[in-house]
Design a protein around this nucleic acid. Structure first.
Length: 865
RNA sequence: GGAUGCUUAGCUCAGUUGGGAGAGCAUCGCCUUUACACGGCGGAGGUCGUGGGUUCGAGUCCCUCAGCAUCCACCA
């Protein structure tokens, strides 16, 4: 028996532990078709946020739904080592603890990091448990574990041998705080206030100068020339001459290069090959030197004279002053321009020439582009994200994969000590003592990209790989399509010749109640733990998955979590009522449909429609729509109508029919619980286990199926009629300031078949003392008449004649408008020839009904006058 | 500069092939009726961003413009 109030804490307590102990989460049902997903591995840097809760709840709903549908479901958990983020966090903590980081060895650091990882993955496990996620922990993996390392090394070596990984010197994005290279997409561009400095680069004889504008004066120490467009008549003649760099007094040539945009700025550009990607390209064309002028912490180096050792921005300020004093500063413009920042440290990224490892992207991008034209196309939900991916892949540049960190997969490249010969292999060279392994590690996303197959045992041909790969669904946010989805796709297509998943469900971000992105600096983050504590995991899960549209952001709303909670309370209490009303010797029996009366036929039909609609939308991963159908059924059809009506039925029927009502109540309740179960497993399990007959757990149940024998809409019209009558009387009473239970007498004129007890139901819900069935509706001079589309009710109360007249006139107007509308359509040759036949018949029937109503109304109006 | 998404009730949002505008919260009135006051019943509230087009018919399809948001590329 359920307690009198829905209390999420008692419902959710210990439940997860029991599911775990029973092994319900473990995939191994070999006799069933396989269905698999891998979790997007969260970073071991902190707590899970609402975005994780959203993403994983979507997956849990799918997992539980598919399991109930008869699949052998594998949902594989794991965490990501998150190289830069984790290393930075650990280093900061060590600093705070007073540890001298400079004295830390690589191995010492790694020992600390692994302990950190254990601690944080423990937190993550706790959060997964509190959300109720159906994860198969027997297969849990970590992106830095041994198996993954084996996969990473193999992929690196294969790509290297295929010429798709190379080591080269290029301009990369340098994070001077983390002191590592970054890939292009780890750089966040946003508009910052800046300055545009105009400097004179004077000719050697000081007869003239070229005006050069720059936003980064400190890079002038790396200038090797000044460029103009050879087609620019203003400056053509300067090509071949020399000018003086006002920063260091060095003489540099003026060269012509068509890259220079004649219409931009002054039309003269300084060229700093080691600190700008475009300048680097120019230097290749003109065979220029590429001096690097900064240290790896973005302080100036020895090439910068007295500025050596100064931070780049301090240097900038001082240098500008010096040049100003020398008379070579013309003006400073305040501008807003886009500046690249490190995704993790937020430091201004310094473009700098550096030797790094790269993945050659064009051939790999081609694999994706071709796959998305083939039968094996990965289906994106919503579909537009496929285009987002393709557009990016079409323009993708080579991927810088080496990171100057310790926490990650160390690159399996070895350099011979004497001559630097490179050796790349999954195993170290035999004469390892003659080699040094590359110190760098790989970008975290390199190993995440192998996640869908490395976790299943690849490169070994394991049973799991055979059974569960490719995975069926991947769910993730749109913010990591480029980082992760694309990389998994080409890695899988390259290494396994198959796409890694069949469907990708893309969702948005969870924002705060004001629509702002949740962030630490704003302090507006909502901790899922707090929400679970206050409203329960079920309410949170329901809120997250039913208040959003696929692919769009959502706002967190405490009100809506609360409303979800109230919905669950509604289900809880309806269950409590039903379980209370069922006789103690209740046994589940087949319902003989031949013996069903109106309301039972009606509700069972509604139930079938609900099962159909919910299932249809579950299959489309449209959880908002699916839950909406159930919600309407629960509130409107079941609780507001059937449950209330069944109270009357139970009073007015014999024991035989009462038993049918019990069976129907039971069936509805059980079906509701099974349908909502994927969303809200805890409360569903609790109610399920309270049912008179049940299995060991709702997790072993099958998903409801439409029972065709109960599809029967015969009584729909009469139930609608009854409900309309009730509603109209209530409405009438409210509008006439009568108490809901005020006595009234009804005269009704029924023109359709109804069912037993129709009058009893009507009486009970309108508090009518007398109900008469009359041939024609009449206006009673003592009371009001109520006019209805299907029939008429005469409500005998003391009412104002004018009000009645008004009401009739209003109804006449409505009917006329409807008739006009119908006529317009039916007289339209295009409608008649193009519309579906059933639509035409429908319109004709409507027209007929409206015309009849109009006649009656006009008749009534006449009587009243 | 390119691309995408959004604009519907006071607020937050649904609205699936074009065929009588919906929910939650808020609000107003009535009801403590024996599942639920975390409730029930009834109501009020919308020229569906602007302007045009297609259509018998447009929140829905096409075009224009505006505002907001996001992504990509970026000029020194």
């Amino acid at each position: 028996m359920l307690s009198s109030r829905y209390d999420h804490k008692t419902v959710e307590q210990n439940r997860y532990q029991k599911w775990l102990e029973k092994g319900y989460f473990i995939a191994n049902k070999k006799n069933k078709p396989a269905f698999s997903m891998v979790i997007p591995p969260p970073n071991v840097t902190g707590k899970l946020h609402l975005g994780h809760a959203w993403d994983t709840t979507i997956q849990d709903i799918i997992a539980r739904y598919k399991k109930a549908k008869g699949y052998d479901v594998l949902w594989l958990p794991g965490c990501d080592h998150a190289g830069i983020a984790t290393q930075a966090k650990i280093m900061n903590k060590l600093k705070d603890d007073g540890v001298d980081i400079s004295k830390l060895s690589r191995q010492q650091f790694l020992d600390i990091a692994w302990k950190w990882k254990d601690e944080y993955s423990k937190n993550i496990h706790q959060q997964w448990a509190s959300l109720g996620l159906m994860l198969d922990y027997t297969r849990e993996r970590f992106t830095l574990d041994e198996g993954l390392n084996k996969a990473v090394k193999k992929v690196f070596v294969d790509l290297y041998n295929d010429g798709l990984i190379y080591r080269g010197e290029k301009i990369i994005n340098w994070d001077p705080v983390q002191k590592t290279a970054l890939s292009n997409i780890e750089v966040i561009h946003h508009d910052d206030k800046g300055k545009f400095y105009y400097f004179k680069y004077r000719l050697l004889d000081n007869s003239d100068y070229l005006l050069v504008a720059t936003t980064r004066p400190e890079t002038m120490f790396g200038d090797v020339c000044v460029c103009v467009n050879p087609n620019d008549d203003r400056y053509k003649s300067y090509i071949g001459q020399y000018v003086i760099n006002p920063a260091n007094g060095e003489k540099i040539p003026v060269i012509g290069d068509e890259y220079v945009d004649i219409s931009f700025g002054t039309g003269v550009m300084k060229c700093t090959p080691a600190h700008d990607p475009n300048d680097f390209e120019i230097s290749k064309r003109h065979n220029l030197a590429r001096p690097i002028i900064m240290n790896n912490d973005a302080t100036m180096n020895d090439l910068c004279g007295k500025y050596a050792g100064l931070d780049r921005f301090v240097c900038r300020e001082q240098l500008v002053n010096v040049i100003k004093n020398s008379g070579n500063l013309v003006k400073i413009e305040e501008i807003v321009h886009s500046v690249g920042h490190s995704e993790r440290s937020n430091a201004v990224v310094e473009p700098v020439l550096s030797k790094q490892w790269f993945v050659k992207m064009k051939p790999l991008a081609k694999l994706i582009l071709e796959n998305q034209k083939s039968k094996n196309k990965v289906k994106f939900v919503p579909g537009r994200f496929n285009k987002v991916l393709l557009r990016w892949m079409e323009n993708v540049e080579d991927w810088c994969i080496s990171r100057q960190l310790w926490w990650g997969h160390q690159i399996p490249a070895y350099y011979k000590k004497d001559d630097g010969t490179i050796y790349v292999d999954v195993n170290p060279p035999k004469d390892i003592e003659n080699y040094i392994q590359d110190e760098d590690v790989l970008d975290t996303w390199f190993s995440s990209g192998l996640w869908p197959f490395s976790t299943l045992g690849w490169p070994n041909q394991t049973e799991d790989l055979d059974r569960y790969f490719p995975t069926d669904v991947l769910s993730t946010g749109y913010d990591i399509i480029f980082f992760w989805v694309s990389r998994m796709m080409f890695q899988s297509l390259y290494n396994l010749k198959k796409p890694p998943f069949k469907n990708v469900i893309i969702h948005g971000l969870v924002r705060d109640e004001l629509g702002r992105k949740m962030s630490k600096s704003l302090g507006n983050g909502v901790d899922p733990n707090d929400v679970v504590d206050e409203f329960g995991a079920d309410a949170l899960r329901y809120f997250l998955t039913t208040n959003s549209t696929p692919g769009l952001d959502m706002r967190y709303s405490k009100e809506k979590v609360e409303s979800s909670y109230n919905y669950l309370n509604k289900i809880w209490n309806s269950a409590r009522y039903i379980l209370n009303v069922l006789p103690s010797d209740f046994k589940v029996k087949d319902i003989n449909k031949a013996k069903l009366d109106g309301f039972e036929t009606w509700i069972l039909n509604k139930l079938q429609i609900t099962i159909k609609n919910v299932t249809k939308n579950m299959d489309k991963y449209d959880f908002n729509a699916a839950s909406g159908h159930l919600y309407n059924f629960v509130y409107d059809d079941f609780c507001s109508i059937y449950l209330e009506m069944s109270k009357i039925s139970l009073q007015n029927n014999n024991d035989k029919y009462k038993d049918i009502i019990y069976q129907v109540l039971y069936k509805c309740l059980k079906t509701i619980v099974l349908l909502i179960y994927p969303y809200t497993p805890f409360i569903s399990e609790e109610i399920y286990l309270s049912l008179p007959e049940h299995l060991e757990s709702i997790m072993l149940e099958n998903y409801p199926k439409v029972e065709k024998k109960f599809v029967n809409s015969y009584f729909d019209n009469s139930v609608s009629l009854l409900l309309d009558y009730i509603k109209d009387v209530r409405n009438y009473k409210t509008n006439n300031k009568l108490a809901p239970n005020a006595d009234c007498q009804l005269k009704i004129n029924m023109r359709i078949n109804t069912f037993d007890n129709f009058i009893n139901y009507l009486k009970r819900f309108t508090f009518a003392s007398k109900i008469e069935n009359v041939e024609e509706s009449l206006i009673d001079q003592n009371g009001a008449i109520f006019i209805h589309n299907y029939g008429d009710i005469l409500i005998q109360v003391n009412a104002n004649k004018d009000d009645i007249k008004k009401l009739i006139l209003k109804n006449i107007e409505n009917e006329k408008a409807e008739i006009t509308r119908c006529n317009k359509m039916l007289n339209n040759p295009n409608f008649m020839s193009k519309a579906k036949p059933e639509k035409i018949i429908l319109e004709q029937e409507k027209l007929k009904a409206h015309e009849e109503n109009l006649k009656k109304l006009e008749n009534q109006l006449k009587q009243l006058q």
